[in-house]
C-alpha cells in the first residue's frame, strides 16, 4: 500500500478549469499510476462539507492524501511535470520554481 496514491480533486461543477483539471489529472493518473491510485473528484457545489474539512478555498484544488505527506495543488493541472514533482511521482533534482509559469512548487507541511 506504500506506493498507493489517494488523490482528491476539488472542482466546481462544469466550470472550465475544473473540467480541464479532471481530464488532466485523470490522464496523468492513467499514465503514471495505473492500477495503484484512487481518485476522488468532489464537486464543491454539491459537496461543500468536504472542502471545509480540508481548508479548500479555491477550486480546482488537488490534494494528495496518500502517500504522506499531504500535498495541495491548485489549478487546472495542465503542467504535468510540476504535478509529477509535487506529487513526488517522478522526482526532479531540486525543489525549484517552474521555469515557464514561474509558480512555486508546493512545500512539505
Amino acid at each position: 500500500m506504500s506506493n498507493h496514491f489517494f488523490l482528491r480533486l476539488y472542482v466546481t461543477g462544469l466550470s472550465k478549469k475544473s473540467l480541464k483539471a479532471i481530464m488532466n489529472i485523470k490522464s496523468l493518473c492513467e499514465k503514471y499510476l495505473e492500477g495503484r491510485y484512487k481518485l476522488e473528484v468532489i464537486d464543491i457545489y454539491q459537496q461543500l462539507e468536504f472542502s471545509m474539512d480540508e481548508h479548500v478555498i479555491v477550486a480546482p484544488t488537488l490534494i494528495k492524501k496518500l502517500p504522506l505527506p499531504l500535498k495541495k495543488l491548485i489549478g487546472d493541472m495542465s503542467d504535468t511535470d510540476r504535478i509529477l514533482t509535487a506529487l513526488d511521482i517522478k522526482p526532479l533534482k531540486e525543489k525549484e520554481y517552474d521555469r515557464e509559469e514561474g509558480r512555486k512548487e508546493g512545500r512539505k507541511e
Binding site: 466546481t12 475544473s18 457545489y45 509558480r103
Partner: peptide
C-alpha cells in the same frame, strides 16, 4: 498561492465562511 491563482484567473470559485456557513462563490 491561492491569491496568485485567483489573480491569474486560475480558479473558478472561492469558498467563503460566512455567518450562514460555507458558501461557494463562483
Amino acid at each position: 498561492e491561492a491569491l496568485h491563482a485567483i489573480r491569474n484567473g486560475d480558479v473558478d470559485a472561492i469558498v467563503i465562511r460566512g455567518h450562514k456557513g460555507e458558501q461557494v462563490y463562483s
